[in-house]
């Protein structure tokens, strides 16, 4: 039967290519995880199962400190970018003002401009324009990184929240106002609940992107404010050992956990329309 449009799905070269692509995407990661449990020093020859490299990690204070830094930076940057992104989205959605289009386009800059350019921009900014004081106590010493991360994250939040606002029924807000709610009250009680799924998705995206970021942090981090990817980068450059594999496996597990929590929460929000 030739008339079936599902023919493309049954076509074996396509299926083979799909399988090969998935193998291409996942095989390196599988190999990486597998060799984190290798007993030998090499990352290519299997010498039996061992947790040796994970034990080493736990005893590596620099790496643990870097992981701590990354989690602190990601948490603060996520909170700040949720706040800024939501405010920006609400203002752009709700009001007509001179420069609205310009601001909307401008907010796309951190998404469009290559990471390396943002990285050097923050390097110049924190070195020349507004020098970030050194020697601050932790976690204030991470401030420059948090500010830089927030700058490239909050436009993503603004876009996601804006997209969600498009599906908001403005009559609901009008009804609230007819019933006597002021602008704030209406935003808080009617608009914000509608935004919940977008806020959750934004938080997940922001946290993951912050945790993932290497290039921008590389230019903003000082010797005492090394984040996890910057530390892992130094390890990768220095040597390829199963220890790096173990670190990477832990980070993969953390990301998977985050995604799982996000999907669960999203399902719960979706199942109960507000």
């Amino acid at each position: 039967m030739r008339g079936d449009p599902l023919d493309y799905g049954r076509c074996w070269p396509l299926r083979l290519l799909l399988a090969a692509t998935l193998a291409f995407l996942y095989l390196p990661l599988v190999v990486l995880v597998a060799f984190s449990f290798n007993a030998g020093r090499r990352v290519t020859v299997w010498r039996g199962f061992s947790l040796e490299w994970y034990e080493r990690l736990v005893r590596n204070p620099e790496l643990l400190a870097a992981l701590g830094n990354s989690l602190v930076v990601a948490s603060f940057a996520t909170l700040l970018s949720l706040l800024l992104g939501t405010l920006a989205a609400l203002a752009l959605w709700r009001f007509r003002f001179p420069g609205r289009i310009g601001l909307e386009r401008g907010l796309a800059l951190p998404i469009l401009v290559p990471e390396i350019c943002l990285g050097v921009a923050f390097l110049v900014f924190f070195a020349r324009v507004v020098p970030w004081p050194t020697g601050l106590p932790w976690p204030l010493s991470l401030g420059a990184i948090v500010l830089a991360h927030t700058s490239f994250l909050f436009p993503f939040v603004a876009i996601l929240v804006r997209a969600r606002l498009e599906s908001f029924n403005p009559e609901l807000e009008e009804a609230a106002r007819d019933l006597g709610a002021g602008t704030w009250r209406a935003l808080q009680d009617v608009v914000l609940p509608h935004l919940k799924p977008a806020l959750l998705a934004s938080a997940l995206l922001a946290f993951t992107l912050s945790l993932d970021d290497f290039v921008i942090t590389f230019f903003t981090a000082g010797p005492d404010t090394v984040t996890f990817p910057v530390k892992v980068y130094a390890m990768v450059r220095f040597s390829v050992t199963p220890e790096v594999n173990a670190v990477s496996t832990l980070l993969l597990a953390l990301t998977a956990l985050l995604a799982w929590v996000g999907v669960r929460l999203q399902a719960r929000l979706g199942g109960r329309p507000s």
């Binding site: 995407l25 990661l29 190999v31 990486l32 290519t44 993951t208 980068y233 990768v236 390829v240």
Partner: peptide, 27 residues
Amino acid sequence: VAVTLPFWTNLLIRTYALMAVLRDEGL
């Protein structure tokens, strides 16, 4: 989801994973 999932994993780690596969004694 299977195609998108790698996007959520760390870029540095994905690059490192590829290094191990492409090395002289790699997979």
